[in-house]
Computed example of a mutant assay.
Amino acid sequence: MTLLDQTLVEEAGKKSALIWVRGPEGPARSLWHVWHDGAACLVGGGPLEQPLEGLGLTDGGTATVSVRSKDKGGRLVVWPARVVELAPHGERWTAAVGELKGKRLNAPDFDTIADRWARECRVLRLEPAGAPVQQPGSMPDDSHAAPPLPTAATTRRRIPAGLPKLLFRKRR
């Protein structure tokens, strides 16, 4: 990887709060992360954290990471990654968790979150493992659009018949 490629991957990773990760299994999934020590660090797999199931991310495995542009929101760079699972309470785990803890929004147990992550979750590092597959000047022409994954959170139903009267009634 050239210095320019490395800089592009690192700057894009630092500025974007979300990355799209495609493991050996399943479709790509958006995950929040922090850029720390030359890699995208993320936490997940527990009941209160982002799901990692179905991606096939294993220690020593590979993944493909897509990062969007903070300015325009479109895909900026896609790079191959090597997955490293950090052992709980190790030196690298503690440093990564310190960064992740500061970015975890609305944690119900902020003071003891590191202990919960050590018990229930996985902390992963996605380290760049080669030159970017896509970058400015070498983007594909197709959109890469995909239908949303099925979820139980979908609540699309007909609106109640009386709701328009409540919303659009004239105030006196």
Rank of each mutant, 00 (worst) to 15 (best):
P88M: 02
P88V: 03
H89M: 04
H89S: 08
G90I: 01
G90D: 07
G90H: 01
R92G: 01
R92C: 07
W93K: 05
T94G: 01
T94V: 12
A95V: 01
A96Q: 08
V97L: 13
V97R: 10
G98E: 05
G98D: 13
G98T: 04
G98R: 07
E99S: 03
E99R: 15
L100K: 09
L100P: 15
K101F: 05
G102Y: 08
K103F: 10
R104Y: 15
R104V: 09
L105S: 04
N106V: 01
P108R: 02
F110G: 04
D111S: 12
D111Q: 13
T112P: 11
T112I: 05
I113S: 09
A114M: 01
A114W: 03
D115L: 06
D115W: 03
W117V: 14
W117Q: 05
A118N: 07
A118C: 09
R119P: 07
R119Q: 13
E120C: 02
C121F: 05
C121W: 04
C121K: 08
R122S: 02
R122Y: 00
V123T: 12
V123L: 12
R125D: 10
R125H: 07
L126W: 01
E127I: 15
E127M: 14
E127T: 14
E127F: 05
E127D: 13
P128A: 13
P128K: 13
P128C: 15
P128N: 14
A129D: 15
G130S: 08
A131H: 09
V133C: 00
Q134A: 00
Q135L: 12
Q135G: 06
P136Q: 06
P136D: 04
G137L: 08
G137V: 06
S138G: 10
S138C: 10
M139F: 12
M139I: 04
P140K: 06
P140T: 05
D142L: 11
